[in-house]
Write a protein that binds this DNA or RNA. Structure first.
Lengths: 169, 169
DNA sequence: TGGTACATGTAACATGTTACATGATTAG
DNA sequence: CTAATCATGTAACATGTTACATGTACCA
């Protein structure tokens, strides 16, 4: 339980780099597909962390490729740091739902407006769910735990849709 | 859909202040109980926003009370701003789940460690769920939409627990 | 080969978190 | 009356977001 001083996003990058050297762009794309919506990572975060991790000796910069994209490879120290992070205590979950926040104040808006609010949101999440199901189909080769995270995302979206239906009716 | 320039946290505070003047401490406590885990608000955020909102004329500072706590009351302009925010487009949801992130890498840890990881997390969420159910019982007087947000929190926790069970088995 | 679209990287900003300083209430 | 505790507020920091500058690849 030694503190590695890694934040979760940095750790996530180290984790992805176990598969081989990647550039910032690669990592953004990979994180998007691997973590989906429950751990988003923006480009700016990635580009901030990479030099930082390299400075600590967890990554080693390679030869710039096309468009002068800078690839990074994980080092032995990086692997150790990642392994340490895996055993650190998991932090709390964080949710931030503008929809739920508005719902808390929904008594202050008109029924008409409430209807469009929920209808719009429903459409968004229908689409998200469809995309996730698509992903699940394509994930047959992936390992069990990658699929598990997808499963969770799907479960969540379904629960949210059901909730929207019962609440808006 | 005019942009009020309000961030959601500021808006949430304005919403709570519709019930009457409150101090920073009051607001933190109220937000905790009203929004629960899907829109957390820390003391520091509150204390940063209050003078800011007062500066814009949305709040009016009252006479300091005990422990020199500063109460704020919402103004007519504040109510207008809040009403405007209610009709602005709701942003995307944000999830941040350290558990899910670790799960994505769970193939890299031992089965033993995985067991404790899930068991610990299960205990935490069991407790959360119990607390929520308690809250639901006590919320009989509350308005329909306050209960709806609670309902969602409960649904979420149940779904998470089910997911933990199927994934860790 | 000119220009459009796109990917990389940066930098300014907004938000969220942690740790601290201060003073008031309460318990002994 | 003194000490311990607790609530208020602040300030430094970490993280996340948005908007921009730059240069490279692609296409007409």
């Amino acid at each position: 339980m030694a503190d590695t001083g890694l934040n979760s996003t940095a750790a996530a990058l180290l984790g992805l780099l176990h598969e081989g050297p990647k550039t910032g762009g690669d990592l953004v794309a990979e994180a998007q597909s691997r973590f989906g919506s429950f751990w988003t990572v923006t480009r700016s975060q990635v580009y901030r962390e990479l030099p930082e991790l390299a400075g600590r000796g967890y990554l080693k910069a390679g030869k710039p490729g096309t468009r002068s994209a800078q690839p990074y490879a994980i080092t032995a120290a990086g692997r150790r740091a990642f392994a340490g992070w895996l055993t650190e205590s998991v932090g709390r979950e964080h949710h931030r739902s503008p929809l739920l926040l508005r719902t808390a104040f929904a008594g202050r808006i008109t029924a008409e407006h409430r209807r469009t609010l929920f209808a719009d949101e429903r459409a968004v999440h229908e689409q998200t769910l469809a995309a996730l199901r698509e992903q699940l189909k394509e994930s047959k080769g992936a390992d069990r735990f990658s699929r598990a995270t997808l499963d969770f995302a799907i479960t969540y979206e379904r629960a949210l849709l059901r909730w929207i239906d019962t609440t808006s009716s």
